[in-house]
Write a protein that binds this DNA or RNA. Sequence first.
DNA 1: CCTACCGATCGGTAGG
DNA 2: CCTACCGATCGGTAGG
Lengths: 202, 202
Amino acid sequence: MDVRKQILTQATRLFAGQGYDGTSVQQIADAVGIRKPSLLYHFKSKDELRENVIAEMLGHWNAVLPGLLLKASTEERFDATMEALTEFFIEDPDRARLFLRETLDRPQSMKAMLAKFVQPWVNLLGEQLERAKGRGLVRADVDPEAYAVEVITMAVAGTAVIDTLEVILPGTPARGSTRKRHARELIRVARSSLYTDNEGEK
Amino acid sequence: MDVRKQILTQATRLFAGQGYDGTSVQQIADAVGIRKPSLLYHFKSKDELRENVIAEMLGHWNAVLPGLLLKASTEERFDATMEALTEFFIEDPDRARLFLRETLDRPQSMKAMLAKFVQPWVNLLGEQLERAKGRGLVRADVDPEAYAVEVITMAVAGTAVIDTLEVILPGTPARGSTRKRHARELIRVARSSLYTDNEGEK
DNA sequence: CCTACCGATCGGTAGG
DNA sequence: CCTACCGATCGGTAGG
């Protein structure tokens, strides 16, 4: 029964690209190559399908990020933490778009998810940044949690819209290199606004 | 005939909050207090209404920003430019949400608008940052246009979702102060990742 | 600015 | 996983 996975894949792609309200169950069924009632046999309602799409994304999140974040933060390589976070979204822009749309469309349910899956990590990171501040490693004027929120926003939203915003950038060289240019500058901004001094990383 | 303005106001509010596809003409008519066909007398179609809502936003943009940006950039107060930009969106979060949704929903038409209304300013800013770089005022590793895109993204997206993301921030003091905390850290990040040295601004 | 009404599409169900 | 079908709502029109 991996028609379920096909449905989830197509639903993710369409919800990310056109939004939940802008996507009909019919369109998803067409993309999979089945009839609408067949889709509704696997997922009782459009809303249940949406919940499963979100759950799948949070699954990736929970499988991949904790290891990266924990490792990076215990070593006090905060920039590596930010790079890992950025890569998680850049790897699959649909993830970023879905996340952003869900935040706009269902702020209340997103609040609950953020409280459960993101806040603990931001708090942990915040404490460690606070300590690093005391030791002069991190700038004194940094607001740790607010800083984390800004970087997360920049990573998610930047990745979600960079293909559209690239029209602003003049020298557009090879295909897809705009994403790299975005990623590089994002990391640079995140890093240089955090540390008291450059550590000489390329 | 300021029922037209009422329609535009309610449409802006509802499109920003629920999206274009998530808002029916009926809902907008109800919010204004007229019948659906009456609304469609003022705006021939839902799509024409959307275009007018966007045009109104771009009108504000063109009326307010050029002066601010030109003044700030000729004085080489780039951080003031960024502050002005941030304030433009923070002043009315619906503006940021609408802008973000339009970028997600209609990337092609947004590309055309960006090329016309934003790219010239980013180019100008880019040239000035490049010169400031040569004089050692701005960090050597800054990618001027990419930097501008990151800051714009942070300002727009941050303002659009901060009310939802505030659940991540622990010490939530007074009402609405989360927005100020967001604005302060955004400016700090933008500034400290741009200049070679602190100029001592509070 | 209204009443009355239209065809098309929506999410979803019955029943096999 | 399908055919057949449902009531509700969609954007929009006729006509006044």
